[in-house]
Structure formats: structure tokens, C-alpha cells
């Protein structure tokens, strides 16, 4: 809870909430700036990030990517290809540019 929370809640345009570990969220420079800055989050509230410009199916892929990125960066194991559904690619490139990840 509060600024030192372990988890971050991401809210989408269609009302879904994604709760991911803070270290995964911080793989995006934009998320990192949003949750690391002078936060107004009260001590007993969860850390929230407003992504209401984007739909949940896009944000779900973003969350999966962030975990993929943290897991495989500097990894010595073989890295699998991260799949992108072509019909989602245009929406996804928009959010990826915004999140800078």
C-alpha cells in the first residue's frame, strides 16, 4: 500500500484492473515515472495507474510483455519470440510508444 507498494493497479477504458508487480511495471519508463514521482497515493491506498485511454485486451498484452521483458533481460536461457497478434498491432504500437517500452 501507498508509495512503497509492491503491486501496481492499472485501469483500462473498459473498467478492467490489472494488478502487476511493481518491478514489472517499472520496465516501462512511463510507468516508472508515473509511480516513482511525487505520489499523492495515501499510505493505505493501492498504487494506481490510469490507462483509461486504452482497452483491456491491449493492456493485457502490455502486462505480459513487461513480465517477458524483465524475465529475459540479461537471461542466459534461450529467449522465445514474443508473439504479437497482427490485428492488435496498430493499437499496441500506440500504447507501446506512450509507455516507451
Amino acid at each position: 500500500m501507498g508509495p512503497g507498494a509492491m503491486y501496481v493497479t492499472i485501469t483500462s477504458a473498459d473498467g478492467h484492473e490489472f494488478i502487476i508487480k511493481r518491478k514489472y511495471a517499472e520496465a516501462s519508463e512511463t510507468f516508472e515515472a508515473m509511480i516513482g514521482g511525487p505520489s499523492e497515493t495515501p499510505e493505505n491506498e493501492p498504487l494506481r495507474v490510469d490507462m483509461k485511454r486504452y482497452q483491456s485486451h491491449v493492456l493485457q498484452t502490455v502486462c505480459t510483455y513487461l513480465i517477458y521483458k524483465v524475465y529475459y533481460t540479461n537471461s542466459t536461457t534461450e529467449i522465445p519470440l514474443f508473439p504479437i497478434a497482427s490485428e492488435m498491432s496498430l493499437e499496441l504500437v500506440d500504447v507501446a510508444n506512450y509507455l516507451n517500452c
Binding site: 529475459y72 504500437v93 507501446a96
Partner: peptide, 14 residues
């Protein structure tokens, strides 16, 4: 660069 960024992955998909 080993883990390709999401932006580049998406750009290529597009």
C-alpha cells in the same frame, strides 16, 4: 537489445 522492445515488435507487426 537482445529483448526487442514492444514498440519495435509492434512496428514490425504493423
Amino acid at each position: 537489445l537482445q529483448v526487442c522492445s514492444l514498440q519495435k515488435l509492434c512496428r514490425i507487426a504493423v
